[in-house]
């Protein structure tokens, strides 16, 4: 993984960080992150994931476009400050964009309106106490309704079903499960191994 931009958010990721002003060290590279030669020196062509979090949105947009050109297969996640730049940076080739003010304002609203649910969300997203995992639908459940299976008893409540590109949130117990469905659960971290044994391999989570 490669990171463009050294700041409070990125400084603890243990990957190569490229910025004009970085401390001395093995996983830092001093240079202009919007410069083609710097990106090549950082080995962008061999990387699979890129995080772009530069001080200036325009720099981030340019860095995304440049990286996309240098490595068409790389997965790019980016953080922007201004709402108008979200579309621009997606157009430049980003796969996942976080709009800072949006994330923060939503978090504030949650704590304002539903404080308990917000602290619950906090435990899921910010700590490793709880986790959302995806499990491939076992063959024996294909064509059955959720209520007719022992899924809830064995693992827990299905909070969503991913079906192709769609996510069915809080599915009805009467939902007919189909081949290729991915069931999403919210589980305590310590339970994950138990589930792994029960359900075979579960996907969409790599440590």
């Amino acid at each position: 993984m490669l990171i463009l931009g050294y700041n409070e958010i990125t400084k603890d990721f243990h990957s190569l960080i490229v910025d004009k002003d970085v401390p001395q060290g093995d996983h830092f590279l001093r240079g202009d992150p919007t410069d083609r030669a710097t990106l090549l020196r950082a080995g962008i062509e061999k990387e699979d994931t890129l995080i772009v979090a530069l001080e200036d949105d325009e720099d981030s947009i340019y860095a995304v476009a440049l990286s996309r050109e240098l490595n068409p297969k790389i997965k790019i996640g980016a953080i922007v400050k201004k709402a108008e730049n979200v579309d621009k940076i997606y157009a430049a080739g980003a796969d996942y964009v976080i709009l800072e003010s949006n994330v923060l304002s939503r978090e504030i609203i949650r704590f304002l309106l539903v404080p308990r649910a917000a602290s619950f969300f906090d435990r899921v997203v910010l700590s490793d106490e709880l986790e959302i995992i995806g499990v491939d639908l076992p063959k024996e459940y294909e064509g059955k309704r959720i209520m007719d299976t022992d899924i809830r008893r064995r693992i827990g409540t299905v909070i969503a079903v991913k079906r192709k590109d769609k996510i069915i949130k809080a599915p009805s117990p009467k939902l007919l499960l189909q081949k290729g469905d991915i069931l999403l659960f919210m589980v305590e971290r310590k339970e994950i191994n138990k589930i792994r044994e029960m359900m075979g391999q579960w996907i969409y989570h790599r440590d």
Binding site: I51, E100, L104, R106, V125, E131, I132, I167, R206
Partner: peptide, 26 residues
């Protein structure tokens, strides 16, 4: 701010579902 943004990136990097959820449901 730092913790929230970092955790969203973290979940995206790991490829789990939380980042999708945080956007869509939360």
């Amino acid at each position: 701010r730092e913790k929230l943004l970092r955790s969203l990136l973290d979940h995206w990097i790991k490829g789990d579902f939380t980042h999708i959820f945080s956007g869509e449901i939360f």
